[in-house]
Design a binder for these strands. Structure first.
Length: 794
RNA sequence: GCCGAGGUGGCGGAAUGGCAGACGCAGUGGACUCAAAAUCCACCGAUCGCAAGGUCAUGAGGGUUCGACUCCCUCCCUCGGCACCA
């Protein structure tokens, strides 16, 4: 019974078959390895001589969960931009790849006893299929994968250059150790004293580590932020993270001793108010002064307590000040020769400044708190004038060097050979890449080495220098290593990456494409990836690989898509929206359109389960409007459409400018208005239908392409020209003159443009509504804004 | 505490000195249908009024202006970041 019924339904109002259409065009686009979206490198082909635009997405970590609606948001925005630029005659580079080293794949491998490379391959396949199902116009010929030995060969090569310049060094340091991941973490990976990835406890351990000297670039990383077209909050986060402050180093001699305690202060003018000195418990002066300290037991106890506290514990204890006086030790204030007491306290941090402070309770809240608790003097003395300031000028940074070793399996091996005689020797370039050996046990050892240490055959090598017995470094690089330079890899990947570096780093190609013109991604990378990548890029600039000081000219952050409950999407909350389900129910075009229509791109916004229906309806409307006008007319004849030609030109302008400014929500709304007006028109010439299709095509490429073909279009829309508007056509001959009395809207009149003040006034005074408002009143003043309003003040 | 972004209908949001609420969702009434779905038409901030129309309304209070969601000051709240950084 239902079948015949169903057929009738279809015949009467054919809904557009998105499943069939999307599959059809995805197949056509895939021809010749997605040749239609290939970017042209430097060549004699005319395509390569066009203006270039490098539109980059933050490449995904191919997790087991598959693509998230948040990915779809950013990737749709960059896809619209890329398609728009192609239609505007640009040679567009829009690539995609996989950031595939790291813990999730390894943890999964441990659990299921599958090699991480297999897990990665499977996830990549799924991600790729999902991205293709959304119609993103990537240049798939340039696909990269950070776990590919041909790729990480060059990650290792860059590390060796850093080592050769003294910017990669080994040091024993107190480091953040995640007890669950069993590895060292970078400072940037520790959030609120816990592991950013697994929220487990982070301990402090002293371990020998590879460290990258990012601090050598602190000033340049800070200064060059000013030239970037990035969201202000991201720049501000980087500025805070770098944390530059100018001050002075001042020495406080220890009374009756050769030793002096050096402090860093940003307020040298307060030195006269210094009433005591505080050292961090880890300060190197303490063992040196041990003989003088009368209460050593107490001091040693406090130091031990501090050592046992994790970062999180120290934060959890809030600001309750603790500390111990070093009895028997006095420091001399070099400004006024006063003898003052010396304390240790964990409110002074060993890794900032000199690990010691001059305490000025009169001008510093923390010092005041401490002084109040321990009954120390709070002197009230005048500021020292600038000409009397003492100490050496010094600039300090919060930024610390980047701890670069991880004690885990699934990462790039650090290409260093440790020789007892020669020390750390870099692997010779011709031996790169140092491939990760396949092993059976990936479990972290819990020690300062990775599981690779157990593979004797791999570890034991000859020293490249003295040919004596030596061992490989067994630590691997952190997740961020591969993503530090992937924006270059897309340019070079088509070159054969085997072979010598001078053949790989093709300057002509790098110079042609760099810098990245538009970079789209989440704000969560503000101080991790985006800082690290800038650091490496600047280093590559210094050694002559690239010609630009900054990698990413413009950065756009897409806002977080929240669950329908307004909360962050998470499996445990059960509020996750799966893009695959949306594609299945409404099609890729509807999903793309909805995510762009939800609100401003950069804003966080909740998912409305009904919202996507509206956009699906809109596409159906477009379909029916263009395919079959006759079925749409009848009941609407009475409506008088606006001047369609004018609206078309206005819409071209609006959509063009909105795409350029990443305001996709209002662009789509303008398209809806146009479609609503076109529906009212009694006829719609092919040319106008084609124009609508073109404007829609970057947003909803599948339906646009199908309709284009149905109207006889032979080309792919990618090779069509973006419509231009005519400024003259936009101008209206008439406008609504607003008539106000005392600044309040009272009436509006349709009048000719360029109407004069006196004419306008006459019209206003003759208006019946206005007359009522003027009864018994005298006009004191008239304000006339040409082509807009007239305001009568009574 | 400091820094940044915000606060507009039932909801997402538009408007950046000139008719507040575009566009969409939800809702109400109607057409079509045996019926439902789909589609189409009309309405859709609050309030007074039979109506014409009026009044109020963009977190709160003040100010500038002929005119303020928009600019300035004070305060409140929300979100994000940083946080014992000397």
């Amino acid at each position: 019974m239902t079948i015949g019924f169903f057929c009738y339904k279809i015949e009467k109002m054919p809904a557009y078959n998105f499943k069939k259409i999307e599959g059809k065009w995805q197949k056509i686009w895939a021809k010749n390895k997605y040749k239609i979206w290939a970017a042209f490198d430097f060549s004699n082909k005319p395509q390569a001589k066009k203006l270039k635009s490098y539109v980059l997405d933050m490449f995904p970590y191919p997790s087991g969960e598959g693509l998230h609606v948040g990915h779809v948001e950013g990737y749709t925005a960059s896809d619209i931009t890329s398609r728009f630029l192609r239609m505007n005659g640009y040679n567009v580079l829009h690539p995609m790849g996989w950031d595939a080293f790291g813990l999730p794949a390894e943890n999964y491998a441990i659990k299921t006893k599958t090699h991480p490379s297999k897990v990665v391959a499977r996830n990549v396949k799924r991600f790729k299929q999902q991205l293709k199902s959304l119609g993103f116009s990537y240049d798939w010929q340039r696909e990269i994968n950070t776990t590919d030995p041909d790729y990480y060969k060059w990650t290792q090569w860059i590390f060796i250059q850093l080592f050769k310049k003294g910017l990669a060094y080994e040091a024993e340091l107190p480091v953040n150790w995640c007890v669950s991941c069993k590895t060292v973490l970078a400072n940037e990976e520790v959030v609120d004293g816990a592991c950013d990835r697994c929220q487990s406890r982070v301990e402090r351990r002293n371990l020998k580590q590879w460290v990258l000297k990012i601090t050598a670039y602190a000033d340049r990383l800070l200064e060059d932020l000013d030239r970037l077209d990035w969201p202000e909050r991201v720049k501000e986060m980087q500025r805070n993270w770098i944390g530059r402050s100018e001050g002075r180093l001042i020495s406080f001699p220890v009374d009756n001793s050769q030793y002096a305690i050096e402090v860093f202060t940003t307020k040298p003018d307060t030195i006269d108010g210094t009433t005591y000195v505080v050292l961090a418990p880890e300060h190197p002066a303490i063992p040196y002064l041990k003989a003088k300290i009368k209460n050593w037991q107490e001091v040693a106890g406090y130091i031990a307590d501090t050592e046992n506290k994790s970062e999180r514990d120290r934060i959890a204890e809030a600001r309750e000040k603790t500390g111990v006086e070093l009895k028997g030790v006095k420091a001399v204030n070099p400004y006024n020769n006063e003898k003052i007491s010396v304390w240790i306290s964990d409110y002074v941090l060993i890794h900032y400044g000199t690990g010691a402070i001059m305490a000025v309770p009169r001008h510093d809240e923390r010092d005041k708190e401490f002084a109040t608790k321990f009954n120390l003097p709070i002197k009230d003395v005048p500021f020292v004038p600038k000409e009397k300031w003492i100490g050496e000028k010094k600039i300090n940074y919060k930024l610390r060097d980047w701890i670069f070793s991880r004690q885990r399996y699934w990462g790039e091996p650090i290409p260093i050979i440790k020789c007892v005689k020669c020390g750390n020797i870099p692997v010779p370039e011709e031996d790169l890449p140092i491939e990760l050996p396949k092993i059976k046990k990936y479990e972290p050892t819990g020690k300062a080495e990775s599981p690779l240490a157990a593979i004797k055959k791999w570890v034991n090598v000859k020293c490249p220098q003295c040919k004596g017995p030596a061992k490989r470094e067994t630590n691997t690089m952190p997740q961020w290593a591969g993503s530090n330079w992937y924006h270059l890899a897309y340019l070079l990947g088509s070159q054969k990456s085997k072979g010598k570096s001078q053949n790989y780093w093709n300057k002509k190609i790098l110079d042609h494409w760099l810098p990245v013109d538009i970079y789209v991604g989440g704000v969560e990378h503000a101080v991790l990836h985006l800082l690290y990548a800038r650091f490496w890029h600047k280093f590559l600039y210094d050694i002559g690989v690239v010609s630009d000081k900054e990698p990413f000219t413009k950065l756009v952050n897409q806002g977080l898509i929240l669950g329908p409950d307004g909360q962050k999407m998470s499996k445990s909350r059960g509020n996750v929206v799966n893009p695959d389900d949306m594609v299945k129910s409404f099609g890729a075009d509807s999903l793309r359109l909805y995510e762009m229509f939800m609100g401003p791109l950069e804003d966080p916004k909740p998912w409305d389960p009904r919202g996507i229906i509206g956009l699906h309806r809109f596409l159906n409307k477009v379909w029916n409007l263009i395919i079959d006008r006759n079925q749409m007319k009848d009941s609407r004849q009475s409506k008088i459409p606006l001047n369609l030609d004018r609206l078309i030109h206005q819409t071209i302008k609006k959509v063009t400018e909105d795409i350029q400014n990443f305001r996709f929500n209002t662009a789509i709304s303008a398209l809806m208005i146009l479609v609503n007006e076109m529906e009212k028109a009694s006829q719609l010439p092919i040319a106008k239908r084609q124009l609508l299709i073109k404007l829609l095509s970057p947003f909803a490429p599948h339906i646009a392409q199908e309709l284009w073909q149905k109207l006889g279009g032979k080309n792919l829309l990618d090779f069509e020209e973006w419509p231009k508007w005519d400024e003259k056509m936009i101008q209206e001959e008439e406008f609504d003159l607003i008539i106000q009395v005392n600044g309040k809207f009272r009436a509006a009149l349709r009048v000719k443009k360029e109407i004069s003040e006196s004419e306008a006034k006459k019209l206003a005074l003759n208006n019946e509504t206005i007359k009522k408002w003027l009864i018994g009143k005298e006009i004191k003043k008239v304000i006339f804004v040409p082509n807009r309003l007239i305001n009568l003040i009574v």
